[in-house]
């Protein structure tokens, strides 16, 4: 039963081989979907290209539904899977700063790496910026106030089901309907917005 590595079905020696292969698939899919282009990515904020919305929502839904099915049929132990922990303070402020970085820089870290790989200098510079941003954070982290804020309002490794006390299937249905509505609205907006060629 999965997950394979945590359950000892694949030995840890294979970890790094698997890491490279998963990374390759990840990079390939992002680049092939056009995510190495900042002007394509940012289109989601101006209404001239909704690739980000379509790829992101589709990927999320496929993953959510697929993992729930694997769990339902007993192929994977859902309780072993790593759930990104919720620290309210840092998740909210951090994501707001990331959103600013996105609209100013035109990439997110994964997509900037794909731009680096195909020779886009703006991707190289963005990635350079990432290093500096991470460096600044690690320097500031020694201040007690920063570390306290970073660890503040910790809710644990909670899921949507824990927080809202709903069952996952009901939530998935709602999320799917929201996604379909978002796709439809996106298509309508895109037809009305002035096209941008890039």
């Amino acid at each position: 039963m999965g997950p394979l590595t945590p359950n000892g079905i694949i030995s840890t020696e294979w970890n790094y081989v698997i890491a490279v292969l998963i990374g390759m698939a990840f990079g390939f899919i992002l680049e092939a979907s056009g995510f190495s282009s900042s002007r394509k990515l940012v289109g989601v904020f101006y209404g001239y290209d909704f690739a980000v919305l379509r790829v992101f929502f589709t990927a999320g839904l496929v993953a959510i539904i697929g993992l729930l099915y694997l769990n339902y049929f007993g192929y994977i132990d859902y309780s072993v899977l790593y759930v990104y922990p919720t620290y309210l303070n840092s998740a909210i402020l951090g994501s707001v700063i990331m959103g600013l970085g996105f609209i100013i820089g035109g990439f997110c870290p994964g997509t900037s790496l794909t731009a680096v790989a195909i020779g886009k200098l703006d991707g190289w510079v963005f990635t350079g910026g990432l290093f500096i941003g991470i460096f600044i954070f690690s320097e500031l982290f020694n201040m007690e106030a920063v570390e306290n804020f970073y660890n503040g309002n910790y809710l644990g490794h909670i899921t949507i089901m824990d927080y809202f006390d709903i069952n996952p299937y009901g939530f998935v249905l709602i999320f799917t309907l929201l996604a379909v509505a978002a796709f439809t609205i996106a298509s309508i907006v895109r037809r009305r917005v002035k096209q941008v060629f890039y």
């Binding site: 402020l93 900037s112 910026g129 941003g133 954070f137």
Partner: peptide
Amino acid sequence: GGLLFGFGS
């Protein structure tokens, strides 16, 4: 943008 994204992440 990269600097901000790096810090935020």
